[in-house]
């Protein structure tokens, strides 16, 4: 590639807040496409891959993780200011992640239970998505995100088109791949009808129910599904846990909203 073309390559940055690194790893997991991507963009900040760090501004910033500390709350504004497009990746960044379970509990109590010297731990009372703090250009769901969807989002932002990321239910994906419905044919509880597609409906293809790791779909009807989950053997604690995993706050907001809302 000529030096001039190299100099004008768009710049990509990957940032991590409170998270497990799994979504960033999805980028490294792209393997063949990663080499091609590395030729097309200048990866200027990606600590998972390289300790060489370049400064902004960045054409595209991918942000993993939720806001759980005062430091990250400040830092996310810096990232936003340095990024032309900010895309959040994964359940932590888009919904607060599993660490948002603290939102339903007393974080001081958790801290005292877990750490020998709790006074060393500086943390916020809640875990919140990036979009609660700064404007976000696109939210890519999943725990972890899907490799193909990540490449689609990056490709779309690089050429300036809208990413093709459907927000319908997992049922669409099951039916498209020819999976026999685990709820209808086996009586297995499944969150698929209220869960955002994107994983390719992996769990039902292996005979187990969807556990909602992509969070709610665009038009979930949770009150209609809950009686089915109970019928198929979920007791109240199990039901609570099913809805309070990686996207706990998103499903909780949904449950609260659907309590008041009547279909129009």
């Amino acid at each position: 590639m000529p030096a001039a073309a190299r100099a004008t390559r768009p710049t990509l940055a990957v940032f991590k807040l409170a998270s497990c690194d799994g979504c960033q790893l999805t980028l490294l997991d792209c393997e063949d496409e990663l080499l091609e991507l590395a030729g097309r963009v200048e990866i200027r900040h990606f600590l998972e891959a390289s300790s060489a760090v370049g400064s902004g501004p960045y054409d595209l910033a991918l942000v993993e993780g939720s806001i759980t500390t005062a430091e990250d709350r400040r830092r996310v504004h810096e990232i936003r200011a340095a990024a032309r497009h900010l895309v959040t990746i994964g359940a932590c960044a888009t919904a607060g992640g599993i660490q948002a379970l603290r939102n339903f509990a007393d974080v001081a109590e958790y801290r005292a239970t877990v750490y020998a010297r709790p006074e060393y731990i500086a943390t916020l009372a809640t875990s919140t998505p990036v979009s609660a703090h700064v404007p976000v250009d696109f939210e890519l769901r999943g725990c972890p995100i899907d490799r193909g969807q990540l490449l689609e989002v990056i490709t779309a932002f690089l050429v300036g088109r809208k990413p093709d990321i459907p927000d319908h239910s997992v049922c669409f994906a099951c039916k498209r791949r020819g999976t026999v419905c685990v709820t209808v044919a086996h009586g297995t509880p499944c969150l698929g009808p209220v869960t955002h597609a994107g994983c390719g409906a992996i769990c039902p293809a292996y005979g187990r129910g969807c556990y909602g790791c992509f969070g709610p779909s665009a038009s979930p009807n949770l009150p209609a599904l809950i009686p089915l989950l109970r019928r198929d053997g979920m007791d109240e604690p199990t039901l609570g846990r099913a809805l309070r995993t990686y996207n706990a706050t998103a499903f909780a907001e949904l449950a609260a909203r659907s309590g008041e809302e009547r279909p129009s």
Binding site: E33, E36, L37, R40, L151, I154, T155, A156, L158, V159, R161, D164, H168, S169, C171, F172, K175, R176, C181, G192, P193, V194, S219, P220, N221, P223, A224, L225, R262, P263
Partner: peptide, 27 residues
């Protein structure tokens, strides 16, 4: 109030024919 809007009925219906368009570009 009962409908999940999950789309299963249309996917299994032998006459439902609707499609959408997907444009794919590479890197």
């Amino acid at each position: 109030s009962r409908c999940l809007t999950c789309g299963n009925c249309t996917m299994v219906c032998p006459t439902c024919f609707c499609t959408t368009t997907e444009d794919v570009t590479d890197l």
